[in-house]
């Protein structure tokens, strides 16, 4: 597996319903990408979540060669939904491989709308992350509805699905397969391909029969007792 095959476009925008694990995926994706190529940037554009944001892993990311773009601490901790001006670096410097970590739901994805003309002029992919254990996106209809709402509010077109089905510490292989089935049904309904299935390293060997890539991750967004 290589991260570049998942990020076949210069800019990857990670969206999805609340709590589907977008940040965990985005952080792992940026770290994997930095192992394969230079000039990787991760932009934390989550303006809806106060905790568990990719900027909490700034040191880890920077040490691994990922440049993190995020609002100043003053802005995020004061609850001001400001966006970092540095974001334009990703749009304007075509040397850069960019991963954009977006807040959940159409509400969180709204931040992209103002950049829509800029994004459309670039080589981008809008990724929709699915977690079949999240009650509001567990059916095909609900999952597709959220996807379409995100496309509508951003004015961008989704071109890849990511199955990130898990149950935190209680994740099993069966959970990931449940998500694979949901993603497959969403893919059939929409014609959007599955880019990968996300799995902690230990599950990767037993998922080799899945037709799509399995992207191995290490949990980075840990809780204080983990």
């Amino acid at each position: 597996m290589n991260a570049a095959s998942i990020c076949s476009h210069r800019i990857s925008i990670i969206t999805g319903h609340y709590g589907t694990g977008k940040t965990e995926f985005a952080v792992n994706l940026a770290l994997a990408l930095a192992r394969e190529c230079d000039h990787v940037m991760l932009a934390d554009l989550d303006i809806v979540n106060p905790y568990f944001r990719s900027r909490e892993r700034k040191t880890l990311l920077e040490d691994a060669g990922v440049h993190l773009i995020s609002s100043s601490q003053a802005c995020t901790d004061a609850d001001v939904p400001s966006l970092p001006a540095e974001l334009f670096t990703i749009f304007e410097n075509r040397e850069i491989k960019g991963v954009l970590d977006i807040g959940g739901d159409p509400v969180g994805a709204r931040v992209l709308a103002r950049f829509q003309p800029k994004i459309q002029a670039e080589d981008y992919q809008l990724i929709y992350v699915l977690n079949a254990n999240r009650p509001e996106v567990r059916t095909v209809d609900d999952a597709v509805r959220y996807l379409r709402d995100i496309e509508t509010i951003t004015g961008l077109t989704c071109s890849g699905l990511v199955n990130n089905t898990h149950l935190c510490q209680e994740t099993t292989e069966a959970e990931i397969r449940k998500g694979a089935a949901l993603s497959s049904a969403v893919s059939q309904e929409t014609g959007i391909p599955i880019l990968c299935h996300v799995a902690q390293e230990r599950f990767v060997p037993c998922l080799s029969d899945l037709p799509e890539t399995v992207f191995p991750i290490t949990i980075r967004m840990k809780k204080p007792w983990e």
């Binding site: 609340y18 709590g19 977690n131 254990n133 999240r134 009650p135 898990h166 149950l167 935190c168 209680e170």
Partner: peptide, 10 residues
């Protein structure tokens, strides 16, 4: 069956 919930939503 278990579901994944955010504390506040739950």
């Amino acid at each position: 069956e278990k579901e994944l919930w955010k504390g506040n939503e739950a």
